[in-house]
Amino acid sequence: MITHPTAVELTEALAGVEAGPPGDARAAFIARVADNARATLEREAALGPAAEAAAVGRLRILLAREGDFETLNAELCARLRDGRLTPLDPAVLAHLKASALDQLAIDQPSYWGVAALQALR
């Protein structure tokens, strides 16, 4: 479901991480990013399948058609682009909100924008 980068690409990037000299600031930074990437992959393995299934369920209703996630997501993008669906349509926004929350729970659960969104009645 998640691309740019996919879990496969992240795994490949992790394989390329080499330990730097002790005390090196750049190496320490890279090590922290790598830890973060491993944690992201773990969350994606745990939460990704349910998030994708939920998205497919919402998209089938919103678009009134069948298909896998890639097909339905591409269809939603196309309809938003050409105006068949409008950005502030409550049904569209509800799907966008649910998807964004699910993806952020994987990518960056500590991001404060989640709290800001949840504070909105």
């Binding site: 390329g16 990013v33 993806q103 990518d107």
Partner: peptide, 17 residues
């Protein structure tokens, strides 16, 4: 090909929220 460059892509979702 650094992990840093790969991971920044996962920050796009913060802007979506």
């Amino acid at each position: 090909s650094s992990i840093e460059r790969a991971m920044i892509g996962r920050r796009a979702s913060e802007t979506e929220i």
